[in-house]
Amino acid sequence: MLFYRIVGALILAFSGFYASVSMNSRLTNTLKQTEAIITLMLFIRSQVECFALPSSEMIALCDRALLRECGFEGDEPPTDICALFDSFGIADSKTAQLARSFAESFGRCYREEQIKECDYYIELFRDRRQILAEALPAKKRVNSTLCISSAIALIILFL
């Protein structure tokens, strides 16, 4: 009986630890995703500025590894900017809102205005990344404390 209790306690402890690691990893990935989206937007801006490429050709030229970092998981990316950004499954709601706003407004104006619009959204995304980066350590600590404390509490109750 004692053996099963010890095993159960170990499982609870492990679960708490795993939950903590998983949640922290998710937070880190959200930040990395935002950084990857900024890189993608810089690429889009450069293609508009240098070549005035249509969006479908731009996406075809885009590095697949970068698209995976942004969250795209399929084989062939969509040819439309809106569909592409929708496919990223952005975890952070505010980042997702910014991405949707950018994608919906993309391609509706001429080159100079489009470049300025890209600059505007890149700046917004950078601000959002800054906020996420600054909040990350504190959120990680909260997650770790919560998960481990919950696990310990359950172990105590269990034992």
Binding site: A52, L53, P54, F106, R108, C109, R111
Partner: peptide
């Protein structure tokens, strides 16, 4: 009408200026 033109430009009006 503006939407139709934008769609015809592949949502890339800047490329057809």
């Amino acid at each position: 009408l503006q939407g139709i033109l934008t769609a015809m430009c592949g949502n890339s009006l800047y490329a057809y200026r």
